[in-house]
């Protein structure tokens, strides 16, 4: 299995994190996303017409979006069925939070690319969009803690939805978005960091073990 990867790319990190949590061995091929924009070059578009990272290759299969990669990995390599649960309720919840992860990419993720790697766009608008999402996520997680729910979905364990949202949230400060006002989000970040098989990326540090 091969991941076309760029270390500082939030969604590549989601893919690496999922692979690590599942204990799947894989190789990486670095794509010079920044500064060379190699993901938009014809050679890369030949394997991913979307011109997007990450891209996962498993045998002859190719998945060129992070949503596709996480869904495939969970279905193919998680015998417990926890990461992409198969009940009606959890399917709906996972799909919903995966959509929110996409919105986080377009807001918090975009603010990060603008501030850090000088991508085009309106950083203020991206931050405003991200803050609106983070407030909702923080409330959802806060009420979850009250109800005894630790994760975005109502399962007793994390799902691919947590992994899809995590990179954009944990890297928000790169885009100028502080997490000071989101205490439940900060606790959720620590819970993700304490999962067995958790892995860091450049800019994300491990946390201490729970007391």
């Amino acid at each position: 299995m091969k991941l076309y990867d760029f270390e500082l790319h939030a969604e590549c990190y989601a893919a690496r994190l999922m692979l690590s949590l599942l204990g799947v061995t894989y190789q990486t091929e670095a794509v010079d996303f920044y500064p060379e924009a190699a993901h938009l070059a014809p050679e890369f578009r030949a394997i991913n017409p979307l011109g997007r990272l990450p891209l996962l290759e498993d045998g002859t299969l190719r998945f060129g979006t992070v949503q596709g990669i996480l869904s495939y990995l969970a279905a193919a390599y998680d015998p417990t069925g926890h990461w992409a649960p198969d009940t009606a309720v959890l399917r709906g919840e996972v799909a919903g939070w995966m959509a929110v992860a996409g919105e986080l990419a377009a807001t918090a993720g975009q603010a990060r690319l603008i501030e850090t790697m000088f991508a085009d766009g309106d950083a203020e608008a991206a931050r405003a969009g991200a803050e609106a999402l983070l407030r909702v996520i923080d409330q959802h997680l806060w009420f979850g803690e009250v109800e005894g729910r630790d994760w975005l979905c109502s399962a007793t364990h994390p799902t691919i939805a947590d992994i899809a949202c995590f990179p954009h949230v944990v890297l928000s400060e790169d885009g100028g978005i502080s997490r000071q006002d989101y205490p439940a989000i900060r606790r959720w970040i620590d819970r993700v960091k304490r999962l067995e098989g958790f892995t860091v990326m450049s800019g994300v540090f491990p946390t201490s073990s729970a007391l």
């Binding site: 270390e7 500082l8 400060e173 990326m201 450049s202 800019g203």
Partner: peptide, 21 residues
């Protein structure tokens, strides 16, 4: 060039949140 760049970007990416805090 890509190897050299990746190495240095990894180092810099680690410094960045420390600097910003």
């Amino acid at each position: 060039d890509l190897d050299i760049r990746s190495f240095q970007q990894t180092i810099f990416g680690q410094d960045k949140p420390i600097l910003e805090n």
